[in-house]
Design a protein around this nucleic acid. Structure first.
Lengths: 198, 198
DNA sequence: TGTTGAATGTTAGATGCGCTAACATGTGTT
DNA sequence: AACACATGTTAGCGCATCTAACATTCAACA
């Protein structure tokens, strides 16, 4: 990865650093990530990132932002094949959520767990709303409503908590270490149904 | 806190450092915690901790371990006033779970999110099993069984995921930033019922 | 009670990281 | 061609983790 550059200028160092950072976050976790490592991966000096980012946190924020975008795309993609408001559509969202978490645990943890200092970042909040909005729309449609009201909010939120919790338990390998054997898809299906019932 | 000691020896430096570490983890997060800060708080030199801990990680592990103990105690305490196997007993466990997370978010995050390197630690796994076992027993009793079988496992796990997810969404302030207004107790009650129904 | 080894503290220093200041190089505009 | 600006480098400060060598205290035993 430490590609020797032929030019003095990198070309697109910002993007290169974000990708290196993402990789490192995935490999060693956001807390273990170091700017210096990212520099080595991108093949630049350790001072270079500061032309593009305020500080280490902002590099992580960029990875976070990019991740939320992918997260969004995955959910949009997941629901695309289903009739809006059906259990299948909602289940597909749940599976996409879990899939993102398990395929990019480092980034997922970064977006939610760590980096509290960025949780009040305007862009992050907007991306979060946009993502949650996808579920809200589906749940609204499920209840035959054309907009999100109190009831929709009350019934959608538990779905989020369950899927979110499941994601964390999966990536923290609680099921593995505690020897729990559950079929994730079945779990999502059964309990989404239960949470929406009655 | 940086109490000047009168003796050359501290008395119980290990405990002092664990407490200082816990405090710092709560204040700045496990990733922002520094051994040097803990030393200043405990009033010893920066080399002192290494007589008691292998490295920085082991200090965090100690906090983790201690936290799991408190977590356990809180859940045992919470269920104590209820008839085993009732919805009230199970709800009480859920409330205790969320209460621990929200009152010690730093430690909670440390126990679950961060510190993956310790998730395969034997002691941690045992403590985790013990804690989950409390819920499993209640759910077994709820279904009128005297031991944990497949059905109990299948019905208890979703409860964990929901409560776990709720805890994370609360401490990451997603409800605040996304302007979601939910009564946590009602949420736990309603959805525990739904997840156990049918 | 005095000696002595183990436990637990200190200081000094090696190594590495985040970040800044001063300087170098390339790029695009007029 | 000349200049301003963007983007790279090197050198260095301050702080962090951790180790090695040394100091002090405690506790066990003669």
């Amino acid at each position: 990865m430490a590609a020797k550059r032929t030019h003095y200028h990198h070309g697109d160092l910002r993007a290169g650093l974000v990708e290196a950072t993402r990789q490192l976050v995935e490999d060693k976790g956001a807390d273990r990530f170091s700017v210096a490592d990212a520099c080595r991966a991108a093949g630049v000096s350790t001072a270079a990132p500061y032309r593009h980012f305020e500080d280490r946190d902002e590099m992580l924020l960029a990875v976070c932002s990019e991740g939320m975008e992918r997260f969004h795309d995955m959910m949009v993609e997941a629901q695309s094949g289903h009739t809006p408001g059906t259990l299948e559509a909602i289940n597909a969202l749940g599976r996409a959520y879990v899939k993102f978490a398990t395929s990019e645990p480092g980034v997922f943890r970064l977006c939610f767990g760590i980096a509290r200092e960025h949780h009040d970042n305007t862009e992050m909040i907007e991306r979060g709303m946009r993502n949650y909005g996808i579920l809200l729309s589906q749940v609204a449609a499920y209840f035959g409503k054309d907009q999100v009201d109190e009831q929709v909010l009350d019934r959608a939120f538990p779905l989020w908590t369950m899927v979110h919790g499941l994601s964390f338990l999966l990536i923290d390998e609680k099921m593995k270490t505690l020897n729990l054997d559950h079929d994730v898809d079945a779990l999502l299906r059964d309990n989404t149904r239960r949470l929406l019932a009655e």
